[in-house]
Design a protein around this nucleic acid. Structure first.
Length: 247
DNA sequence: GCGACAG
DNA sequence: ATCTTGTCGC
């Protein structure tokens, strides 16, 4: 797959202001709902969706992006790409560090996924344009952001107590987010939990990337999770990226 | 100036 | 993200 919107390809050479301006344009082009302009690509209810997971690993000077494609619990394709890292990690600008390697990996891909699970935030982002949104809009493909910690926004209720498995808590826009206050920009999703007093698992922070609603994003992540907290395509992409870098 | 921040 | 041993609990 190649960028459908080349003007949105993340350029690490941009100034900080230019990056933020681009993110506002991306958010304006994003679709945070389940309504598609073109539903010819939608999976029919009787066929299992093709779900991709993407994750990156780093060494001293390169970023490696790994893509794992699954259908009905089976890996049907796996690709990767390595690119030099141009800029450091800056909260809010992650896609300009990792986006290039991700888009390179997508160029190697032959299967067209129905949805992509991206490691990081989507709409849970200061300008509603996290990594998942950036990749989704640039490729014009449905994406979901799956983060292990919360970048911004306000949980509707406290997350200080462990949540039971299956619980979902809305994350609302606050003053740090461009969306109107109270807008549901994602969910804390407890895919797994221990039944113990001393040990507990933190929730995932799931948000729409592109062409999915906050509710559907959480549904997809739950449906792709099995033995572990992370959805399977993400977990496999994570370990694949790790073993590629370790060599 | 202070706080707060995906990977 | 990455650097790493022990340790907790099923």
């Amino acid at each position: 797959m190649w960028p459908v919107r080349p003007e949105f390809v993340p350029d690490p050479a941009l100034s900080r202001d230019e990056m933020e301006t681009l993110q506002h344009d991306i958010a304006a082009a994003a679709n945070f709902s389940d309504d598609s302009e073109d539903d010819s690509q939608r999976p029919t209810p009787e066929e299992a969706p093709i779900v991709a997971g993407v994750d990156q690993a780093f060494d001293d000077e390169t970023a490696t992006s790994a893509l794992v494609i699954m259908q009905s619990g089976e890996v049907i394709e796996r690709v990767h790409a390595t690119e030099p890292t141009e800029i450091p990690y800056i909260p809010g600008l992650l896609s300009f560090r990792e986006g290039g390697a991700i888009l390179s990996a997508f160029k190697e891909l032959e299967t067209e996924p129905d949805v992509v699970l991206v490691d990081g935030s989507g709409r849970i982002h200061f300008r509603e344009a996290g990594l998942a949104t950036h990749i989704g809009v640039t490729l014009d493909i449905p994406t979901v952001g799956v983060a292990k910690s919360l970048l911004c926004g306000q949980p509707r209720r406290s997350l200080s107590e462990p949540l039971p498995e299956g619980t979902r808590v809305a994350i609302e826009a606050d003053g740090d987010v461009t969306a109107p206050e109270g807008t549901v920009i994602g969910h804390a999703v407890q895919t797994r939990q221990y039944n113990s007093d001393s040990r507990y698992i933190n929730p995932l922070y799931v948000s729409p990337g592109h062409q999915v609603s906050a509710e559907t994003a959480a549904d997809i992540v739950e449906s792709q999770s099995s033995e572990y907290k992370l959805p399977e395509p993400t977990r496999l992409a994570d370990s694949y990226a790790g073993e590629l870098t370790r060599r």
